[in-house]
Design a protein around this nucleic acid. Structure first.
Lengths: 332, 332
DNA sequence: CTGTTAGCGCATTCAT
DNA sequence: ATGAATGCGCTAACAG
């Protein structure tokens, strides 16, 4: 392996001069710099980033840690990448996977040290697990769970989005709106917040909210959603609207309705949440809540940059506003 | 920061003993090990991975470098992750982005050194760019482009998949099958290989292949595909089958047909390529080519492990077989 | 503007 | 079974 001292010897300078030519921290006069560059070319030298990291204490790399590489997360990742790169850093993705022990492992101080900053998606982590995350590495949490007060946190306006979705259908004549993937009770997770929005819309419209229409799911997959809604329809449940808590759930719901020849939006209206690209291409196209990925990405990186700059103001909680995108799965 | 010598001092041993307790390379008697473990707990010590990397020359991390975090790539990534983790290593994703200079930069030896091995998706890189990749880091290429002979390479049976897709429609009565996203000529890229398969199916069936039905696209997005096919239909082009070179392209094609009230599969049959999950939930569901992501992931990691083990046999080229998945967008 | 000195924290090598 | 010495390749701090 070619090292900096090989280059220094070849160019007749010290290693510091080579270092300065490479990272530009100090001025090097042109003739010297040219000699160094020539030596670098000739020897095919490349800086050893590991050594640089050990010495400088910085990696110029930010990690985005997500539960899976799919759907919502790949959308956010593709938005965060250019923002991170604009400040001359790299973004890498790591996956926590489904297993709790893997989640904890990704969060170990040892792994986190590898990065100048970390954006951690908290889906799949509960509050107790988050409590155990002890690190001085700047970290911003992303997602719909309740998190300990000491973290910066970016999340969506869940309740408001669910309220918009439900109100849109109620205003178009729906009277029995099922919330697929909603959770009863007053927990603070995504499923409960979105169910609360569904309830708020009913209150505002003066329509009674039937608890039998709150239907939880466990995996939030299209497959499960299709099976669950299909089973309820077979069992004779009557609905004229479905608020699916994610677009993936909505996809399964649309399939369950199509399986039975139930017309959308004439017989049943459907609204999702996430504005996945695929929604535009379904027939009918999917009315949904746009979660404003760009704003989520910008906010997360803004908070992270602030921490990386050494700011130690109290943690900030950002709630990103959302908006309804009306398409063909609801009535005009 | 707590270092190994802090722990050694606390436990009354040398740093070597702490190191041995942590990585288990040598035997340490129980009482000594217990003292070390107690000191580690007490001080909250975590190993500094950067220092370990510099010293040991290994990172126990494999990188998957992809053009974007979407679709096909997130599917493959989610399959590679568990295989990598099973051997006690980490997987990280990096994105090259669309810009060639960024692709080159991700491929610099400096970045590649950070990893014990690299799986590089070559979509978006041309052969000349690949020629410039000089590194001793084990690397396996993934994707449908032609690559220099010195690389291990995993790709799909593109032509065979396209042949299966086209033959399936021809056998079901289609006579004017458009290949959306295909490229004319004898280039070796995905678009040309799949067009060649479309042609082969026509030859085998004794149906003339009309060159006017080879329609290239530039972005392979659903949006572009919808616009391109829509434009052709408006212009009066008559087709009774569409072979879309990816499922994303098929999604746009299905939308273009639905926009005009053209029935699938009665008026026009449609087959995609990739077996994205969404295809199962469309109405009608999408007939497609299953690219066998599991086998792609397994092959790529098998080749990589072999190189990382120091094997220097000639490069291996794996062509992963594909199969047709018949669903509702083609006739029974 | 450039060189010298002195480690960053760990694991390999050789010694005991 | 454990320890001492050494240096992986680089850059911060201080000289000159």
């Amino acid at each position: 392996m070619v090292t900096m001292s090989d280059v220094a010897r070849e160019a007749g300078v010290s290693t510091m001069t080579v270092s300065n030519v490479l990272n530009g921290h100090r001025r090097v006069v042109a003739p010297t710099r040219d000699r160094v560059m020539t030596a670098i070319e000739k020897l095919g030298y490349e800086v050893n980033l590991t050594a640089r990291h050990l010495r400088s204490g910085r990696t110029d790399t930010i990690a985005l840690i997500v539960p899976s590489f799919h759907d919502y997360f790949s959308e956010v990742a593709d938005r965060i990448a250019p923002i991170v790169e604009a400040s001359g850093r790299h973004l890498v993705l790591e996956r926590t996977g489904a297993r709790p022990e893997s989640e904890i492992e990704s969060l170990s101080v040892a792994r986190l040290q590898m990065y100048d900053g970390v954006v951690l998606s908290v889906a799949g982590l509960d509050r107790d697990q988050l409590e155990t995350v002890r690190t001085r590495a700047p970290i911003v949490l992303l997602g719909e769970r309740e998190v300990p007060a000491r973290f910066d946190h970016v999340r969506l306006a869940n309740e408001e989005g669910a309220r918009l979705a439900t109100a849109h259908m109620l205003a178009r004549g729906a009277r029995r709106v099922l919330v697929l993937g909603g959770a009863p009770g007053d927990a603070s997770g995504m499923a409960s917040l979105r169910r609360a929005g569904w309830e708020a819309a009913h209150r505002a419209a003066g329509v009674p909210a039937d608890g039998a229409l709150v239907v939880p799911v466990t995996t939030y997959s299209a497959r499960e959603s299709r099976e669950v809604l299909g089973g309820l329809l077979e069992a004779g449940l009557r609905v004229d609207g479905v608020f699916a808590v994610t677009d993936t759930v909505a996809l399964g719901a649309m399939a369950a309705l199509a399986d039975r020849g139930i017309g959308v939006p004439d017989d049943v209206q459907v609204v999702g949440f996430d504005d996945l690209d695929v929604g535009k291409y379904l027939s009918p196209s999917l009315t949904t809540i746009d979660p404003n990925h760009d704003e989520v990405a910008r906010s997360a990186i803004r908070l992270l940059e602030r921490r990386m700059a050494g700011d130690d103001d109290p943690p900030e909680r950002v709630v990103v506003p959302v908006r309804l995108v009306a398409r063909g799965s609801t009535r005009p």
